[in-house]
Amino acid sequence: MPEITISMAAGRTDEQKAGMMRDITQALVKNLGVEADNVVIQINEAPLTHKMKGGKTFVERKAAQSR
């Protein structure tokens, strides 16, 4: 049973996340030959203030892009 964990910054819609999980499920069915019912996917989301890249939080990075 493949189990996939995805870590990402919060902010996507439930529809976007569901679509992504469906696509990943189908990729595992196609490439690994497993049944969709055996695929488990979990999303771990972090608030933008709890993720950092390049020494700036994602909130700071987003604010800098808006300027």
Rank of each mutant, 00 (worst) to 15 (best):
M1Q: 11
M1E: 13
M1Y: 11
P2Y: 02
E3H: 08
E3P: 00
I4C: 10
I4A: 03
I4W: 05
T5K: 11
T5Y: 09
I6F: 07
I6H: 08
I6E: 07
S7Y: 13
S7V: 05
M8N: 02
M8V: 10
A9W: 12
A9H: 04
A10T: 10
G11S: 07
G11W: 08
G11K: 07
R12K: 14
R12D: 08
R12G: 09
R12T: 08
R12N: 13
T13R: 06
T13K: 05
T13S: 15
D14E: 14
D14W: 02
D14C: 01
E15H: 01
E15A: 15
Q16P: 11
K17F: 09
K17R: 14
K17T: 09
A18C: 00
G19C: 04
M20C: 12
M20W: 04
M20Y: 05
M20N: 00
M20R: 01
M20K: 00
M21V: 05
R22I: 03
D23Q: 12
D23A: 15
I24P: 01
I24M: 10
T25Y: 05
T25K: 00
Q26W: 06
Q26M: 14
A27P: 06
V29R: 03
V29N: 07
V29F: 09
V29W: 11
K30E: 15
N31K: 02
L32R: 03
G33I: 03
G33T: 03
G33H: 04
E35K: 11
E35T: 06
A36L: 04
D37A: 13
D37Y: 02
N38K: 13
N38S: 15
V39Y: 09
V39F: 10
V39S: 08
V40N: 10
V40I: 12
I41M: 04
I41C: 06
I41E: 04
Q42M: 12
Q42Y: 04
Q42V: 14
Q42G: 02
Q42T: 14
I43F: 02
I43K: 01
I43L: 14
N44R: 10
N44L: 06
N44E: 07
N44V: 11
N44F: 06
N44G: 02
N44T: 08
E45C: 05
A46R: 08
A46E: 10
A46Q: 13
A46P: 00
A46I: 04
A46N: 10
P47M: 04
L48A: 12
L48W: 02
L48S: 08
T49P: 00
H50F: 02
H50T: 00
H50C: 00
H50G: 00
H50D: 14
K51R: 12
K51Y: 15
K51W: 15
M52W: 09
M52C: 11
K53P: 00
K53Q: 11
K53D: 09
G54N: 12
G55R: 05
G55A: 08
G55P: 05
K56E: 15
K56T: 12
T57C: 09
T57N: 07
F58H: 08
F58A: 03
V59A: 09
V59R: 11
V59Y: 03
R61H: 06
R61W: 05
R61V: 13
K62P: 00
K62T: 12
A63C: 00
A63S: 06
A64P: 02
A64L: 10
Q65Y: 07
Q65S: 15
Q65C: 03
S66L: 12
R67F: 04
